[in-house]
Design a protein around this nucleic acid. Structure first.
Length: 205
DNA sequence: CGTTCGATGCACT
DNA sequence: GTGCATCGAACGT
């Protein structure tokens, strides 16, 4: 980790969710777990904003699952999707307003052997660029699960830090994998990054 | 290349 | 009982 690394302060998450989604590109998602540190540069994100957003988990009001979305910004919202994939979000804006940024892909920068080990345990045989490509894959690689739900992203074992990386040109388009709300261009990714999932990855510049 | 489809578990109706 | 902010293997071009 570079000497100028610093944790992203809680006030960062109190901005408009689209701003946070855009500005998270280039920041580093870090997990200090039992096996050691694993971390990756955020290269893809999506915004989910309020009960008016049909794709947001809070679109039908507060429930037991989505309650973290209504909590203070700067915490993690982690949940299980399709029965087998943990997805990690950063809660944004303000307490009482359900909004968050889904982290969809990382460029691995620390703990690569640990990531390879975690992915290989489930049969993964791809290259390092694919270790954290996709929201379910990156949580697997970093060892993120329910224990990190509602964790403080500034002080917890799971944090978001600024290691001084600058994201390259950023592209924007419709969100992936949702049924409703596909018309909103609330997905952001680093143009040309080989670690980005779906359309936009690789040559998708 | 492209598309289809099963795995898998929990929240919600 | 249904549907899901996924993934990757198994097909058909």
């Amino acid at each position: 980790m570079p000497t100028d690394a610093r944790v992203v302060p809680a006030r960062f998450y109190r901005q408009a969710t689209l701003t946070v989604a855009r500005e998270l590109l280039g920041k580093v998602l870090v997990h200090d777990g039992v096996g050691g540190r694993s971390a990756g540069i955020i290269v893809e994100s999506e915004a989910y904003v309020g009960e008016d957003d049909p794709a947001c988990h809070a679109s039908r009001g507060p429930t037991a699952r989505n309650l973290p979305l209504y909590g203070p910004p700067g915490r993690a919202y982690v949940y299980l999707n399709y029965g087998m994939h943990w997805l990690v979000n950063a809660v944004t804006e303000r307490e009482g307003k359900p909004a968050a940024v889904l982290v969809r892909a990382l460029e691995p920068v620390a703990g690569l052997p640990l990531m390879r080990e975690r992915r290989a345990a489930l049969g993964f045989k791809g290259n390092d660029e694919a270790l954290c490509r996709g929201p379910g894959n990156l949580t697997r690689a970093l060892g993120i699960s329910a224990v990190h739900n509602e964790g403080d992203l500034e002080t917890g074992a799971l944090r978001i830090e600024d290691w001084g990386y600058r994201a390259g040109p950023v592209r924007r388009g419709p969100r992936i994998g949702i049924r409703a709300g596909t018309e909103r261009p609330w997905r952001f990714w680093v143009a040309g990054s080989a670690c980005v999932s779906g359309k936009g990855g690789g040559s998708g510049g």
